[in-house]
Measured scan of single mutants.
Amino acid sequence: EVTIKANLIFANGSTQTAEFKGTFEKATSEAYAYADTLKKDNGEYTVDVADKGYTLNIKFAG
């Protein structure tokens, strides 16, 4: 089991951190699915992958 950390960075400057656990593939998939649910209210997003994929910096356009 691994932990994927998602740093969520919103257009208004606020930030939030979420963690997803499971296999690497499952946790990564859940992180992207979570970002997709936030897209409606926060706009499109870009992802900067860090720490060999264990950290995702997800920035929303607003």
Rank of each mutant, 00 (worst) to 15 (best):
D41K: 14
L38G: 02
K40W: 08
K52E: 13
A11H: 15
K5Y: 14
G62C: 07
Y45Q: 01
N12R: 08
F60G: 00
K21Q: 11
E30H: 11
A27I: 03
K40S: 05
A35Q: 00
F10H: 03
F20T: 01
T15P: 06
L8P: 00
A6W: 02
E30L: 11
N57Y: 13
S29L: 13
T46H: 09
N7W: 12
K39G: 06
T28V: 10
D51F: 04
T3C: 04
K52W: 08
G22T: 02
E25I: 06
T17A: 11
T23S: 15
F10G: 02
G22H: 02
A11C: 05
E44Y: 08
S29E: 12
T23G: 06
F10L: 08
V2G: 04
G22M: 02
G22L: 01
T55E: 07
T55V: 14
I4M: 03
N42K: 10
L8N: 02
Y34E: 02
A18P: 03
K5T: 12
A31R: 00
F60S: 00
A11Y: 10
N57M: 11
F20N: 00
K52L: 12
K39Q: 08
E25P: 06
T23Q: 13
A33W: 06
Y54H: 10
A6M: 12
A61G: 08
E30G: 07
D36V: 05
E44V: 12
I4P: 00
A18G: 06
S14R: 15
A18Y: 14
Y34C: 04
T28M: 14
G13A: 05
T23Y: 15
I9H: 11
E44A: 10
F24K: 09
K39P: 01
E30N: 13
F24G: 03
T37N: 12
T17Y: 15
L8E: 00
T46Q: 06
E1L: 06
T55I: 12
Y34S: 02
T37E: 08
A18K: 12
N7G: 02
K26W: 14
F10C: 03
I58L: 06
T55L: 12
L38R: 06
N42R: 13
G43I: 02
F60K: 00
F60N: 00
D48C: 06
F10Q: 03
Y45I: 03
E30F: 11
T15F: 11
N57D: 06
T28K: 08
Y32S: 03
G43F: 03
L38C: 04
Y54A: 06
I58A: 01
K5L: 15
K40R: 09
I4Q: 00
T55M: 10
Q16N: 09
G22S: 05
E25S: 08
A35Y: 02
V49T: 11
N57K: 09
E25N: 08
V49G: 04
K5I: 14
D48E: 15
D41W: 15
F60E: 00
F24P: 05
K26I: 15
V47G: 02
E25Y: 07
Y32H: 07
Y45A: 02
K5V: 13
G62V: 09
T3Y: 09
T3G: 04
A61M: 12
G62K: 08
K40L: 12
K5R: 13
T3D: 04
A33G: 08
T28W: 13
E30S: 10
V49E: 08
V47F: 05
A27K: 01
E19K: 11
V49Y: 11
A35T: 03
S29Y: 09
Y54W: 10
T23K: 05
T28E: 05
T17V: 14
F24I: 09
D48P: 01
E25H: 06
K26A: 15
I4C: 02
D51W: 03
Q16F: 13
A35R: 00
L8D: 00
G53T: 03
G43Y: 03
A27P: 01
K52C: 06
F24Q: 07
K39A: 08
L38K: 09
K52G: 12
K59W: 08
A50R: 14
A31Q: 01
T55K: 06
G62S: 11
F20W: 07
A35V: 15
D41H: 13
V47A: 07
A33L: 10
E44C: 06
S29F: 10
G22D: 05
N57G: 04
A6Y: 01
Y45S: 01
A27Y: 01
K59G: 04
I58K: 00
L8Y: 12
G22E: 03
N12Q: 07
A31H: 02
I9C: 05
T55F: 06
G43M: 03
I4W: 02
T23D: 08
A27Q: 01
D51T: 03
V47H: 03
Q16M: 15
Y45K: 01
E44H: 14
I4N: 00
A35M: 10
N12T: 10
E25F: 07
V47C: 04
Y45R: 01
Y45H: 02
V2F: 07
K21I: 13
T55C: 04
G13M: 11
G22A: 07
A35C: 04
A33H: 13
K40P: 11
E19T: 13
A18R: 15
E25W: 06
E25A: 08
T37M: 15
S14W: 14
A6I: 15
A31L: 08
A11Q: 15
Q16P: 02
G43R: 02
K26D: 15
I4T: 01
K39M: 10
E1R: 03
T23A: 10
V2N: 05
V47K: 03
I9G: 05
T28C: 04
F20V: 02
T23N: 12
I4E: 00
F10S: 03
G62Y: 11
A11G: 10
T17W: 14
A33N: 08
D36I: 05
T28L: 15
A18I: 15
A35K: 00
N12W: 07
A35E: 00
I9E: 07
Y34T: 04
Q16C: 05
L38W: 12
G53V: 02
A33T: 08
A11F: 12
G13I: 04
N7A: 06
A18S: 14
L8S: 02
Y54V: 05
E1F: 05
A6D: 01
G43W: 03
D48A: 10
G62R: 10
D36S: 07
T15L: 15
A50V: 09
I58Q: 00
S29M: 14
I58P: 00
N57V: 11
N7P: 01
E1M: 07
Y32A: 03
T15E: 07
A61D: 07
A35D: 00
S14Y: 13
D48F: 14
K26R: 05
A6T: 09
A35P: 01
T55P: 01
T23V: 15
E1W: 06
T15H: 12
I9S: 11
Y45N: 01
A6Q: 03
A61W: 08
Y32K: 07
A6N: 01
D51H: 07
A50D: 09
K40F: 09
N12K: 08
T28P: 01
T15R: 11
G53D: 03
Y32V: 07
N42L: 09
T23L: 08
G22Y: 02
G22N: 05
T17Q: 11
A11M: 09
A50Q: 14
A31S: 03
T37G: 10
K40M: 12
F20I: 03
L56N: 01
I9L: 14
G53C: 03
K52Y: 15
T37C: 05
F20C: 02
K21F: 15
A27S: 05
A27V: 04
Q16W: 13
T46C: 06
K40C: 05
T17R: 12
A27W: 01
Y45P: 02
F20L: 02
N57F: 10
T3Q: 09
V2P: 04
F20Y: 08
D51V: 02
K5P: 01
A11K: 12
K39L: 06
S14F: 13
T55A: 05
S29N: 13
S29C: 05
F60Q: 01
L8T: 03
T28I: 12
D51Q: 05
F24N: 03
T37Y: 09
T28A: 06
K26Y: 13
A61K: 14
Y34D: 01
N42Y: 14
T46N: 08
K52M: 12
F60M: 01
T46Y: 12
A11L: 10
D41E: 10
E19C: 06
K21M: 13
T37R: 12
K59V: 11
L8V: 10
K21A: 10
K40D: 07
I4F: 02
L38Q: 08
G62I: 07
K39D: 02
S29A: 13
T15D: 08
K26C: 05
I9P: 00
Q16G: 09
V47Y: 04
A6H: 00
I4L: 08
L8C: 04
A18Q: 14
E19M: 12
V2A: 08
